[in-house]
Each structure stands twice: as C-alpha cells, then as structure tokens.
Amino acid sequence: MKAVTWQGSQDMRVQEVPDPTIQDPGDVIVRITSTGLCGSDLHLYEPLGPFMTPGDVVGHEPMGIVEQVGPGVETLVPGDRVVVPFNVSCGTCWMCSRGLHSQCETTQNRDQGTGASLFGYSKLYGQVPGGQAELLRVPFGDTLPIKVPHGPPDDRFLFLSDVLPTAWQAVEYAGVGEGESVLIIGGGPIGAMAARIAARRGIRVIVSEPEEDRRQRAAAWGAEVVEEQPPAELAATLREMTDGRGPDAVIDAVGMEAHGSPAAELAQKAVKLLPDVVAEPLMKRAAVDRLVVINTAIETVRRGGTISISGVYGGAVNPLPLMQIFDKQIELRMGQANVHRWSDDILELLTDDDPLGTEGFATHHLPLSEAPEAYKAFRDKQDGMIKVVFQP
C-alpha cells in the first residue's frame, strides 16, 4: 500500500509499505477514505524528529471502511464505516472507564514515561503505524473505532478523530458558560472549531490570531477578533473589552509551534542537529518550547480565571511564572483529548444539520501523493491552507 512516511527532518515521502495484517483477534483493518493533516504532525516534521525512525508511517486523523475483522470482533463487519480516534485506547481499563482515554493503562508507554499510544506519533507514543495511508490496522475493534452512518460526505464525520474532541475538551476545560467570555489564542483548526463550539453555547468568543484569513474565518462564525499583540498590550485591549477584568478563560490552541520565541526556536533547531542518542534525553529534560502563547494566556486571563491548554508542548522543563499564576489564582487544565469521553455528545450534532460546519471546514482536499508538498505549505501557511484532508 501507499503511505506517508517520515524520512528525516522536513522530509516526508509517499512510499510503498507492506499492507497491515490482523495481529490480534480484536483487530480490524480499515481501508482509509479520508485522513487529515494535523498541526501536531508539524511537531514530527521538525522538533520531535529525534523520536522518529525513518520509514515511520504518520497520521492520526483517519476514517474509512472496515475491510477485515479479527475473529474476536463482535460489533463490526466488513463494509461498516468508521472514524478512528487518535488515542489508541482500550476503552475498558481503569483510566478509560473514567473518561481518561489519553491515559489508557493498556497502551500507556511506561518506558517513555508517557500516556496512551497515539497513531502515527513517534516512539514517545508507541510508534504505532499511522493513518496517512491506504490501509490501517486498528486494535480494540469493539471499543476503539467509532461507527458512523453511510451517506453524508466524509468531512461530516472525519474530524471526530481529533479536531472536534480536542476543541470540545478545550471548551469543557475552560469551564465557561453562557454569557461568560473566552479568549482563544490561535485561529488554526483547533482554535477555529473551539470558537464555533463555544459560540454555539452562548459564550462570548474572542480570537487572537496574526493571520488575516484565519481572523476572517473566526469572525464568520460569530467571534470577535483581535490581531496578535505583545502580551501586556493584548491584556490591556482585553480588559477594555471585558469591564476591566480580562476574559473569564483563555484557550491556548497553539502550543509549541508559537512564533515570537526566538531563543526556544533556536534551541529546537540546535537539538535537531544532535545525534538521536543525545537529542532524545535532552528533549525529555530541557526547556525547548516556545512559551509566548502560554505566557500570554497567563497575562490576559482575569484573576480567578481558567486557562485551558490544547496546544501540544514537548519540553519537559519549562520556566513558568508560578508567582503570577499563584497570585492571580489561575486554574490550569490541559492534556491530550480523551476522544471517547466526548464522541457520543459530538456525534449527536453530526447526525443532525451540521451546526458546526464540518462539511466546509477543510480548506484543502488533496490526493495522498501530494502530502510532502502539503506539509511544507501547511507549516508556512501558504495558499490559505488551514485544514488539509488527504484522500488516498
């Protein structure tokens, strides 16, 4: 089959790789019909390279048609249409039973000190072959894939794999209700979808984003938009908009890909030049994140407010202004999205009249063969590229 493989820093290639096979009675094989390109994939494209192996199949936002089921699978049959969550979670362990699927104890990577395995996401998270491919082996066939109806186009359901539950959890963790306010930093896929979810709940949404096309996209769904500003200036602007206090909550929808942190950017580039045997432990123990967004969130949120972090960070040791966090009595909530914790609630909306605009959410649909060029264009924000869907 054809698949997108990592071959080195900024070197993604579409190659022929062996077809996946049933390895456990609970496995299913899915023929992929659509698969997304995520902002988190850019972390593999550059900073997390030390944890990748040439030939790794990437991608964690797939859906498709079940082609084969293992002898232990009871709830799916060939021909069923499914979305595959990016968490590789069993659905039955202590953590999963408490809605913490990203911490699944069955697939937890204890040797790396990380949570549940993820599809297509380095040896930090299990080195499980990903879904930017023609076929995908999916374990836990009775509990992991999300069965969806035939009929509507793929884009109606595809974002159940990551974007929708990640944005949904970001809003849930923000802890704001109707009539309250939330600042969303970043107008990419997660920020844009979080804005739609929050606005639908009657929350006042403010989006801070440097790119004009992304600001327009957020404004079209009812958000107030502000241009990117230094933290202190943005805080002053927001206080003027919110009775002198600041927003009730802030969602960091950017993470380690933030601009405006030249020292951390230099550290990321320097680490990439080191041999993996040196770079891996350094990445686990050093501060290599760009922290401008989280620091902006701390500066702008009102006293007693909440910061919800959905943007991914990779540095193990980062200098945070703990005195300011403590003094402002800020609540921090964060973590990989627990897809199955939210999927039933979201699916109810997707089988209705598409109130979150999923069918028009992707800006680009491309064949899988164009993936290498798409990674570069997505990183560089070229051609209005905000959300890419590949079709094998």
Rank of each mutant, 00 (worst) to 15 (best):
M283C: 08
A297F: 11
V292I: 07
E224D: 08
D276L: 14
K272G: 04
R239M: 02
R214A: 01
E209G: 00
S208D: 01
E211I: 14
E299H: 13
P262N: 02
W221Q: 12
I185K: 03
G187M: 14
A198H: 05
Q268Y: 12
A194P: 10
A287M: 01
A192T: 07
M193R: 05
M193K: 07
V271K: 00
S181C: 02
E224A: 09
V292N: 04
A263R: 02
A267L: 11
L274D: 00
I206C: 00
D248Q: 15
A235P: 05
S261Y: 15
A286M: 15
A253V: 07
A279I: 10
T237G: 11
L266K: 10
T306Q: 14
R302A: 13
P230S: 04
I251N: 01
A263Q: 11
V278F: 07
T296R: 07
T237Q: 15
A219R: 05
T306I: 09
I190D: 08
V250I: 10
L266Y: 05
V293Y: 03
G255P: 09
P262Q: 01
V292Q: 06
A263Y: 06
E233L: 05
W221N: 11
L273P: 02
K272P: 08
Q268L: 01
V278W: 03
A199M: 04
E280W: 10
I309G: 14
R196P: 03
V254T: 07
R204W: 09
R245D: 01
A232Y: 06
L234E: 08
V288S: 09
E227Q: 13
R201M: 12
G246Q: 05
L273W: 11
I197C: 15
R290H: 12
E280K: 15
R204K: 07
G255I: 08
H259P: 07
V207E: 11
W221T: 15
R196S: 06
T296S: 13
S308K: 12
